[in-house]
Design a protein around this nucleic acid. Structure first.
Length: 595
RNA sequence: GGUCCGGUAGCUCAGUUGGAUAGAGCAGCAGCCUUCUAAGCUGCGGGUCGCGCGUUCGAAUCGCGCCCGGAUCACCA
């Protein structure tokens, strides 16, 4: 079934061909949805065409309008305002669209195509020295949502997580626990494992800062003091022991990481995040070295006198970049080269997407070029989904300064707010306790997820802990509420909306607005996939919900006297709810049947 | 300093390949529940789209130059 813009575009092209013997590219036409304050469904901007017609914009628009009306049975009228041709489609056309939708399942969602290479999406990628915070939430929600959106575009998606489980920062919490932990465990302390480990990371920093301060008082420079602080020397030694495979250290490492994983697992579960495959840096960090060694052999890379290995990217407008330290240990870039190569070998994906903050844009520029130089042609398929920081009113979150918004705390707070608000409104009065708590969970998560995902990924966004996330207006709960209202109507009828027989009806202005929006959904899904932007889905869902609410307010569905109209409205409402459910599920948001 | 990203209403954000009078939400004010759920709907006020020049029928959108904010340019990750 053709959509209105395609119909208009094709008819316009053939008219221009017939009347002016001019070949026009359908793509070059500017077609847009007619603005609300004008009468019509789709608008053709005719200014660019006046060069061909050699007539005024108004004349041109009128000519095309007449031609469309004559040649397209779907078009029953038009008006021209200053070079804008507003085309009006018949009620029957829109009615037919809805009738057609009735026969479809999951309109706008493209089923997975067979025989395709998968797309790999890496996201989350936490460090095991502290619990997840709001920044991680944005990362996780984006990664999960983009994965769903790509799936909805017919792709096979593999979600991977790369856990940064080793390194000096991990040793810091280990050392602090060793020194001051008194054998404290999640069980004895009653603390979630990741929070407990995070506590010792902060503890380390506290002692470290004190030591540095003490040293600088003796007139020693800060830079030197930072290197010489005894606790820092100790932690470096611990890292060496770890790399040497020291039994005791490895055991401590496994134990504390185990606590963290258990903690992460519960946070992920609350958030509704899951992965197809989890990589651990401790298992992959060595493989990058092999690639670097090969590059050295082939003369692609250069070794300096001290033994460090570099790649020269000055020809690409970048700098020289270190790939191996002089002591032979690997850096972040080294292991990323290795992990990428491993993954490519394992899945042969058509594309590898990395959901990583924009602070690492440079890193990914280097990664792509470095891999290409090292004869990995698939480097070109790497895409960095770079997203902006989540900022607090007084600037960036800093874990060491305790200004982070903790993921678990935030979700708990949201849950409490949802409960409080629901109770105030009396919405859960006739629900059982499990039903009610399930509702609080869905509503609070919707508020949080929507709040984050509605913002264009590449932009920084602000979170103000003082005024908590809204449940009214442009929010997740607003859309859920619209859905729940429709569900309530559906409970009152005894037929399955899919089975309702429709006959042609007159379609009112408000209904028409809803129908037009409904029909746009597939295009939005495609666009969101191309742009890797859940925000497009979020904004669309809001618009649809708002439009439906206006219709709902102005007209009755179940009390409509004319049977054909009533049937049409029921089906339209049902379609709206299906699209809201499918759209929101692309954001990882669940819809409650009642609220 | 080099590179990249951003600057739209008091606040948080939309604004498609350049198109009509720049839109929502929140906050403020004023209304709407004997009728399908008021977490809703309606109305009002609120703007030098950072600044300037240019490109053209037309610029928040494209180009150039400046101003402001952020990120990054580590033998950190």
């Amino acid at each position: 079934m053709k959509n209105p813009s395609t119909l208009v575009a094709e008819a316009t092209v053939s008219y221009i061909k017939n009347a002016f013997n001019h070949d026009l590219d359908a793509q070059s036409l500017t077609l847009q949805s007619t603005r609300k304050d004008f009468d019509g469904d789709i608008t053709l901007v005719v200014f660019p065409l006046t060069r061909i017609t050699r007539k005024s914009p108004t004349e041109t628009a009128n000519m095309i309008g007449e031609a469309l009306k004559a040649n397209l049975p779907e078009v029953d009228g038009f008006n021209v305002i200053q070079g804008f041709l507003n085309i009006h489609f018949t009620d029957y056309f829109w009615w037919e669209q809805i009738q057609y939708l009735q026969t479809l399942k999951d309109f706008g969602i493209i089923p997975q195509r067979n025989g395709q290479q998968p797309i790999l999406v890496e996201f989350s990628s936490p460090n095991t020295n502290k619990p997840l915070h709001l920044g991680h939430i944005r990362n996780n929600l984006l990664g999960a949502s983009v994965s769903r959106i790509l799936s909805a575009n017919g792709q096979k998606v593999i979600k991977v997580n790369l856990v940064n489980d080793r390194g000096i920062h991990i040793c810091k919490s280990m050392l602090a626990w060793q020194k001051w932990g008194n054998g404290e465990t999640p069980e004895t302390s009653g603390m979630k494992g990741d929070h407990l480990v995070g506590k010792y990371y902060v503890e380390f920093d506290k002692h470290y800062k004190a030591e540095v301060a003490a040293i600088t008082e003796h007139g020693i420079k800060l830079e030197e003091a930072e290197k010489k602080a005894p606790i820092m020397l100790e932690v470096r030694e611990m890292l060496l022991k770890w790399e040497a495979g020291d039994r005791e250290i490895r055991q401590l490492w496994s134990k504390m990481n185990g606590w963290v994983y258990k903690g992460f697992e519960s946070t992920y579960q609350k958030m509704g995040i899951e992965f197809d495959k989890i990589y651990y840096e401790s298992n992959t960090y060595l493989t990058g070295k092999t690639i670097v060694a090969e590059g050295l052999e082939n003369g692609i890379l250069a070794q300096k006198e001290d033994g460090s290995v570099w790649i020269d990217l000055t020809n690409d407008g970048l700098d020289e970049k270190l790939l191996l330290r002089s002591d032979g240990t690997s850096v972040y870039m080294t292991q990323d080269l290795g992990t990428a190569d491993l993954r490519y070998g394992e899945f042969h994906p058509q594309s590898m997407i990395y959901v990583v903050g924009n602070e690492q844009n440079y890193h990914f520029d280097v990664l792509k070029i470095a891999l290409a130089r090292l004869n990995k042609p698939w480097a070109a398929t790497i895409r960095h989904l770079s997203y902006g920081m989540v900022e607090l009113p007084d600037g960036k979150m800093k874990s060491r300064e305790g200004t982070v918004v903790d993921a678990d705390d935030l979700m708990d707070q949201m849950y409490d707010t949802a409960r409080q608000m629901t109770e105030e409104l009396g919405k859960a009065d006739d629900m059982t306790e499990p039903e009610a708590s399930e509702l609080y969970r869905k509503v609070s998560l919707a508020a949080l997820k929507y709040f984050i995902l509605k913002v264009d990924p590449k932009k920084n966004m602000l979170f103000n802990p003082a005024d908590s996330i809204d449940f009214n207006g442009n929010t997740g709960p607003f859309i859920q509420y619209t859905f729940a209202r429709i569900k309530s109507i559906m409970r009152k009828i005894d037929t399955n909306p899919a089975d309702i027989k429709l006959s042609p009806v007159e379609i009112g202005l408000k209904e028409r607005q809803v129908v037009r929006l409904v029909m746009q959904f597939p295009q939005i899904v495609i666009e969101a996939g191309k742009e890797m932007s859940p925000a497009l889905i979020a904004n669309y869902c809001f618009e649809l919900a708002k439009e439906f609410n206006q219709f709902y307010h102005d007209f009755s569905i179940l009390h409509e006297n004319i049977a054909e109209k009533k049937a049409f409205r029921i089906v339209l409402a049902w379609q709206t709810s299906e699209i809201l459910r499918n759209g929101m599920s692309l954001l990882g948001i669940e819809m409650p049947d009642r609220m």
